[in-house]
Design a binder for these strands. Structure first.
Lengths: 195, 195, 195, 195
DNA sequence: AATGAATGAGGTTTCATTCAT
DNA sequence: CATGAATGAAACCTCATTCAT
């Protein structure tokens, strides 16, 4: 987002790092591994990033950028609120499970490895996302499609969605769209289901 | 599972390790840290555990044992299924957030650090838990209290519940029971709510 | 001086480090070199010292301790002041050039490698030494054996003495005592020399 | 000595390097630092100098050139010897403490970082300086203004003078001329002082 | 004349682990 | 049971140096 130096090589490194961080975890991913993934010597990494943690920070910033982008998509005022939530869910799940987009997954699993300073930044970005979800949920509440505490509902939906990281198999028979629909039916039941 | 040597000291170590693993993560928790937490020298740990990973394995076994225990509580046949699910949820959340029970939290966050061999063992235990949840969900389906894919529902409920690790504050105003009720209302709406 | 853990091994390390620091300089002396000098692996050093700089700090503390000890030797009140200065000089030069006492030489040449924090400590100790020299020089001034600015005189004497590090050869024909006498004659000429 | 390629840029680099070497020491001064000080990239330095040590060699050659120049100033035969020594001292101290002349200071503190080969060269130049000082001291001895070993006297004077690097403050109230006079009074007392 | 990307050797440091006591 | 000394592999990181452009 605000990365001044977003050269190709830097991006390559970030992407490779994200994949590794996701696969084996930030502490277990060595700088050598990352370098090898882009065909570099380990020392060369530090031409692009001052420290290993800086790579994580950049990965997380990008992950959060995607998160926000997925949440803040401009939605036609006329779109019915349930449809808006569906779009939100689909986009979120898409980003989470799309190939070559490991950054968001890293955001969800590696925030503990961030220094306090960087953590604050990530938290601030997370708040942006929450706000977007809250807006849509509020519309749903006004339309009497949901009831109860909106905050809890948001956390439940995101929890259920993010947990899919642990089990969802892209090669399985359940498509992202279907998964989104199932979750949507769960959290915002249609009148049809009630009878 | 029922460890041969379950001496007091060993249990102390496991508990201290669990707390550390939860707090800073398994890779970042050093053997020295664990030892210091129980007033030992780092070398002494290896009298009790052959490797650092063995500690993690033991922590996870205990975590899984608690998970299973919470799930497999013998329930009176006569208990209404919705009540059964509530009990399941409350027990799970209780275990997850109770003080001095960091093992279950570790199970949820550190399985990546397990060797393939140990992972298989943990997965087998997880299946036991799933079976218990499935049984209750099936009863709910038969009573037409829920509809849709039971597996997805189970994953959604557990996802929402486990995600509470990221945000639930024991010192906040929301009690575990209230949280469980809110989640229950979400996933198994009562007729009352429908009108 | 105030080192809590002054074990044999630790002292060995300090001594070996001092020799190396003196010979090749602190930045050029690698931890590996120091370890090899006492028959250790480089990693083992950090069982005794937290960082490489901590070794330097310890070396300098010891060097300063020797410096102070040489300066603060209790001198009989009755000793004539010129004799006192001679003792000071001899002890200082002895310490500076004695075999297996590289610490003081390191103090004089490596203070630049100290962190600001440690530097303050060393400077404080240096002030102690200056005070001792000043006391003696004051006595000489009161006896009209010297004149002029005492601070400048002290700096000149110490400069001349310390500079001997650059050229004095222990194996040469000039003994430490003779060197001390020559310097003394220079800075505190005897009446005999004046005629 | 008279470098073939003494371009402006090269001189800029040498000057910047000298300042850095003096301030933080040769080993701690990185090629990047030097380059940045003249607004270059680190790689560009190697267009002007083959190695980092070559920069040091050039700095020291220049430092020695200044040292020799200060010492070998043509002095009128008729000048009284004490005045000659004063001139020598003043010029030496001036060079040592003048702004933008860090080369001489580097000569005094960084000879350890020179390779054996370059060191020999510097030592040869130093001998030239010593010869100049010896000539003047000899004249003083012949005029019975000093006594004792001339070599020791020379080393003492230079030691005292060079030590001023450690404490002399250009912004303080003591001028270079006053310092020179005080040292001169110390080493070549005037008849006035004797009474 | 200068750059910017990259190297690779080597530096300090960490840490699970061993073992004699 | 437990320690404390030590290991050694491997981690992150630095930096003089190279070279195509």
């Amino acid at each position: 987002m605000n990365t001044l130096d977003d050269s190709t090589r830097r991006r390559e490194l970030r992407t490779a790092a994200a994949r590794l961080f996701r696969k084996v975890g930030y502490p277990q991913a060595t700088v050598r591994d990352i370098a090898k993934a882009v065909g570099m010597q380990s020392g060369s990494i530090f031409y692009y990033f001052k420290t290993k943690e800086d790579i994580l920070v950049e990965v997380m910033n990008e992950g959060m950028r995607q998160f926000i982008e997925a949440a803040c998509v401009a939605m036609d005022e006329a779109t019915p609120p349930r449809m808006k939530l569906r779009t939100l869910l689909v986009r979120h799940l898409m980003t989470l499970h799309s190939r070559n987009n490991d950054e968001l997954a890293v955001v969800l699993s590696e925030w503990r490895s961030l220094s306090a300073r960087s953590r604050r930044h990530v938290v601030a970005q997370r708040d942006e996302v929450e706000a977007a979800w809250n807006r849509v949920l509020q519309e749903l509440a006004q339309a009497h499609l949901i009831s109860g505490d909106i905050a809890i509902l948001r956390l439940a939906i995101l929890g259920a969605a993010n947990w899919s990281l642990q089990w969802y198999d892209k090669k399985g028979k359940l498509s992202i769209d279907e998964l989104a629909d199932q979750l949507l039916d769960l959290f915002v039941p249609t009148p049809a289901r009630r009878t």
